[in-house]
Each structure stands twice: as C-alpha cells, then as structure tokens.
Computed example of a mutant assay.
Amino acid sequence: MTAPDPELERWRLILGAPAEAHTGAPSSKAADRDAALDWLYGRDAELERRHIRRGGLARKRGDGTEESEGNGGAEASGRDRRAGSEPSVLTTVDWLDDIHRLFPRETIERLERDAVESYGIHEVVTDPDVLSRVKPNATLLRAVLRTKHLMNPQVLVLARRIVEAVVRELLERLTPEIRSSFSGTRARRPSRFRQARNFDFHATIRANLAHYDPATRRIAIENPRFVSRTRRHIEQWQLILLVDQSASMTASVIHSAVTAACLWSLPGLRTHLITFDTAVVDLTQDVTDPVELLMKTQLGGGTDIAKAVAYGATLVDNPRRTILAVVTDFYEGGDEHRLVRTVRGLVEQGTQVLGLAALDEEANPDYDHDLAQRLADTGAHVGAMTPGRLAAFVAERMGR
C-alpha cells in the first residue's frame, strides 16, 4: 500500500473531510490529528455554517432536488467523525493526552490557548485530572487567574502549581534584565576607574584625534576616557504601580506583579503595588510574594482609574522623587475629568506620571486613544512597555 503524500495530508488537515476526494484518505496518525483538531475547532459556529452551506449545495447539484441548505448540510457536511456519541466520549483529559502525543510543543501551546481563550473550555484549568496533566505556561496562568473563583480548594492547590511555575520562570528571566538597569547611571564626571561598561566613546575619540592615521583611516587610542557612575542609594525614590484588573489587562497584571517583586529590594527605590477595578486594593505587603499576590487578584468588573490615581497621589512623599505608573487600557468607567485634573496636578508638582497601555513582553496595546492623549497633553508619559523598558525608564529618571 502506497504511503500517503505528506503534503496532501497536510492539506487534508487544513481543509477537512470535504477535501478527501482530491487528497485521499489520511493515514492513521493524520486521522488522529484530524480528530483532535476537530474536537476543538469543530465547535466554531462559522465553520458549522460553512459546512452546512457546502453540504446543501453539493446535495442540490448531485440529485437535482430542491432541499434547503440546512437539510442537505446536516447530512453532507463532511463531519462524519462527530456523529454518534463521540463528542461526549472524548473528554478534555483524553484530548490533552492526544495532542501531547500527536503534536510538537509549539502546536500544543497554541491548541491549549485556543481551548481556553477562544472556546472557553475551562476544564483545562478547573478539572483536577486535567490540571495534573498540563504543562504550566503563560496561557494557562492567565486562564487560572480568570477562573480561580470557580475552583474548589483541591483544584486551587493544583492551579497554584501553574502560577508558581510560570512566575518562577518569569522571575528568572526578568530579574537580570531589570536589575541591570540599576547598576548605576553614567555621570558626566571623568573617572580613573577603567571598566568597559563605563567607557566614554565620544570623549575618547576627541582626546585622540591627534593620533589619526590617514593611510589606515584609524585612530590610535593612547588616552582612553571613562566616566563615573552614581550610586542609587544616595536619594530615595518612590515607584507607585497602579494596575488595572480588568480582564483585558491580565498579561499586564502578571508582569506588573513580577516586575514589582524584581524592583522591591533595590537600594534607593521604594515600590508600591496597587490593583484596582471600581475599588482600590493596596497589595504592597505582598510584593515579595508575586504568587500570593496574583492569587489575590480579582480580574474583571468595572474600572475607576480616577479613584486609583487619587489614591496613588496620597502615597507621594516627595513629588520630585516619585514615579507614578498607571497600567491600564484607559477605558475609564469613572470620572474622566477628575482623572485628568489629578494627573495634571501630579505633573505640576514634579511627579513623573507614566501611563502604560500594556506592560508585558509583547507590549501590544489596545486602549482608548482619546483619553490617553488627554493625559499626555497634561504632561504624562503614555505608551506601552516591556518590564525591562519600564525598569530602564525608572533608572533613567533616578539618575538625573
């Protein structure tokens, strides 16, 4: 028996059962993959409508009858696998076992993400049998935070394993990047302490122009120049992080918690972390334990940015040594005029106000541009940042 063509099999998986007339039947493994994909993506309502239309037209062309598209499609949709009792037999646990057997890691992560985020299959994070099988990743962490209110104590223990694993991985990756921003800022004063990271390129070129060789077009460096670095613990600064808990900001909530933990013990910087929806909750005491902090967050609900910023303003000790960062999509459910007035007052007294439409590794924001522009017009800095870039922003301001 001739083995199926891999390219045709790939197209068969993409196009579904109606393509078999041209691609041929898939191999056993490809059929298993197709079944796993259909278990998830067969739920798509638009796909169902397309199959019904395609099936109805095929029936009409085949025998000349005038059956409605719905009747024809029900019989000729090409989704034979889903007939009978199969959807009820194949559980989420079975499906997870299948995809981990059949697909590479990148595909598995995409399938798990779509299961939770596109099709609301919350068993992935609320069923203890499923939780014991899944590999922790950022998608599952976001799902845990959104659905933990549905979990009983036993499931919460298993869900916490996902939170701990992903937070630990984020801390290991982000801590060096964030802390490197605080190794000291360059000062303008020359230094006799020679260290590569303190090398002053422009001053060195100016000091050695007399040694330029036109033939080789090179400068012989006889007198390298270096600069000194300031020490950050000389003056105390405050960083006040206000984090929107609305569902669309889940990734930013996670990275805000981890970033605050990374910044917490840095000399010269006092970090506050406040979450908000229509209420404001000060979680500063939990900053050193981002896992516990995330388990306390309550995602969803309304948004009152004005109330959160007003609370943050009460924490300011020295305006000219304070950075107030609001992580939000700027869709205000409270008083916009109050928000703009409060931000303007903070800027006028010397506080650095930073509005972040996203704080995560992608930094792809979706936000209310009009309100963001109004805040920028008052003197606030508005944008989207990765955690490392936020740390660099804080370091730059502290080094002035």
Rank of each mutant, 00 (worst) to 15 (best):
R161G: 14
F201D: 02
F226D: 02
V258P: 01
T250Y: 02
P176Q: 05
Q245A: 14
A207P: 00
R161M: 04
R206W: 05
S181Y: 01
V253A: 12
V163K: 03
S183Q: 14
R218F: 00
A203H: 04
L269I: 09
R217W: 00
I162R: 04
L242W: 10
L158H: 10
L263V: 09
I219Y: 12
V258K: 01
A196G: 08
Q236E: 13
I178R: 01
W237Y: 14
E177K: 13
A261I: 04
R192T: 13
V243F: 03
E235F: 05
F199E: 05
R217K: 11
T216R: 15
R231Q: 09
P176N: 04
A215M: 07
R229V: 14
R218N: 04
A215S: 08
S181E: 10
A159T: 05
L242Q: 10
L209D: 01
A207G: 00
Q154R: 13
F193V: 15
I219P: 11
R206D: 10
Q195M: 11
A210R: 13
R186S: 08
H149V: 02
E222T: 09
S191R: 08
T185C: 10
T271V: 15
P176F: 05
L171R: 11
H202L: 11
T175L: 05
F182A: 02
E222H: 10
D244G: 09
F201H: 10
D244F: 07
A210D: 14
I234P: 00
P267L: 05
L239G: 04
T216S: 13
E164C: 02
I274S: 03
H149Q: 08
A247G: 13
A159W: 05
R189H: 07
T204D: 03
I219A: 04
A196S: 13
L209W: 06
H233F: 08
I205D: 03
F201V: 15
D213Q: 10
L241H: 06
W264A: 15
R217M: 02
S181W: 01
F182P: 05
R186Q: 07
L171W: 02
R189T: 15
A261C: 14
A220Q: 12
E172K: 15
A159C: 06
R186I: 13
S256D: 05
A261H: 13
R232W: 09
D213A: 06
D213S: 03
P176D: 01
A159E: 03
V166L: 01
L174E: 13
I221Y: 04
G184Q: 06
R179E: 09
L273N: 08
I274P: 06
V167G: 01
A165V: 06
L241W: 05
